[in-house]
Simulated scan of single mutants.
Amino acid sequence: MKRRFAPKSLLIVRTDRIGDVILTLPVAQAAKKHLPGIKVGFLCRNYTKPVVEMSPAVDEALTIEEEDINSKMSAWDAAILVHPTLSDAWRLYRTGIPIRIGTAYRFYSFLLNRKVFEHRKYSVNHEITYNLHLLQPLGVSVEWLEPELIVPDDALSEARKILSRADVEPEEFVAIHPGSGGSALNWSPENFRSLAEILKKDGIKYVVTAGPGELELAQFVAGGKTNVIFNQPIQIVAGIYKLSRAFVGPSTGMLHLADAVGTPAFGIYPVLRVTSATRWGPAHNKAGWISPDLPLCERCRKSCRYYPCTNLVSPLEVYRRIVDVLAG
């Protein structure tokens, strides 16, 4: 594809959740590869900034909470609005960034001057592929790149200390994260607990990670307080996942965090098309796309005879998937 523009700097804008941010980082990786010499920035939120800072493809991480953020944004030549919101589109327009790229299908898309005509609502592609397509107005045509994160040495060191206190050796355990941000149907707490019991019976150690508001759930899954790692900074959590043999969880940011640091990640997904593994599965490990054996559906109803369909996936099936990958 012929390159139409050659900006010297590119600001990627994604101000939603951790998993969404991680699946956007391949845009930075592709820009670095195909636009030689370009400076890449990433506009996010305070709580996702430590994740962005682990990407070797991002030169500068900015947050919308900074007092002088509009002034800082005005220095960039081009911006890509990955997750379209009216507030972010208006911010790009007001700061006068010359090239403003985003979807053509929002009522406020007139605030952008380089548009991509692609609907995401049909979810025929993975989120990474949709994100990469936003580089097309800059002459970059890429369909797939896995996100890559590098855990800082100090975070890895602290992760090792936490595992030592839990009497767990690095690379000899499975990480389980049963909490979900609510963006998709979760597996039941009972299923996560059953999986933990199967792992224990087979002599495989595990730890259960939990964020704010998830401690009670984590303790239920773990069968007590032992082996629960609660409310650690995100880079230390990344270190724990980096040191694990495998990760199991729902469709959540922690799954993509584990996947991006190179750990085989296994996610339990519903068959609702817009939240399916086809759209949101772990990038590196397609064996970790675990869903019920049902056709994709367009709407999720509590009256559905399969609701919640995620619970049709058995703990034994997940255990076998993990063992197969670890054995390979």
Rank of each mutant, 00 (worst) to 15 (best):
F107E: 11
Y108L: 04
Y108T: 06
S109H: 08
F110W: 14
F110S: 14
L111E: 05
L111R: 08
L112N: 05
N113C: 08
R114L: 12
V116I: 13
V116R: 00
V116E: 06
E118P: 00
E118S: 06
E118K: 14
R120K: 12
K121M: 04
S123G: 00
S123M: 00
N125Q: 11
N125C: 01
H126M: 03
H126V: 02
E127A: 13
E127M: 10
T129C: 04
H133N: 13
H133G: 02
L135P: 02
P137F: 13
E143T: 12
E143C: 04
W144L: 08
W144I: 02
L145R: 11
L145E: 13
L145C: 07
E146P: 01
P147E: 05
E148Y: 05
E148P: 00
E148T: 11
E148R: 10
L149W: 02
I150E: 12
I150C: 03
I150K: 13
I150M: 07
D153R: 14
D153V: 08
D153L: 13
D153M: 08
D154G: 02
L156V: 10
S157P: 08
S157G: 10
R160Q: 13
K161S: 11
I162G: 06
L163C: 03
S164N: 09
R165C: 06
A166I: 00
E169M: 13
E169Y: 06
P170V: 14
V174D: 03
I176N: 06
I176W: 05
I176P: 04
H177T: 06
P178W: 02
S180K: 00
G182Y: 06
A184Q: 06
A184M: 07
L185P: 14
N186Y: 03
W187K: 04
E190R: 13
R193Y: 07
R193A: 14
R193T: 05
S194K: 15
S194F: 11
L195T: 10
L195C: 07
L195G: 04
I198D: 04
L199V: 10
K200P: 03
K201Y: 12
K201A: 13
D202K: 15
G203W: 13
G203K: 12
G203A: 12
K205F: 01
K205C: 04
Y206F: 15
V208K: 01
V208I: 12
A210Y: 02
G213N: 10
G213R: 08
Q219V: 07
Q219N: 12
F220M: 12
A222G: 06
G223S: 10
G223P: 07
K225A: 13
K225T: 14
K225H: 10
T226F: 00
N227Y: 03
N227W: 01
N227C: 05
I229Q: 05
I229N: 04
N231A: 11
Q232N: 07
I234A: 06
Q235I: 02
I236R: 05
A238R: 02
A238D: 05
A238V: 08
A238H: 03
G239C: 04
K242H: 14
L243T: 01
L243H: 01
A246R: 09
A246H: 10
F247Y: 15
V248G: 07
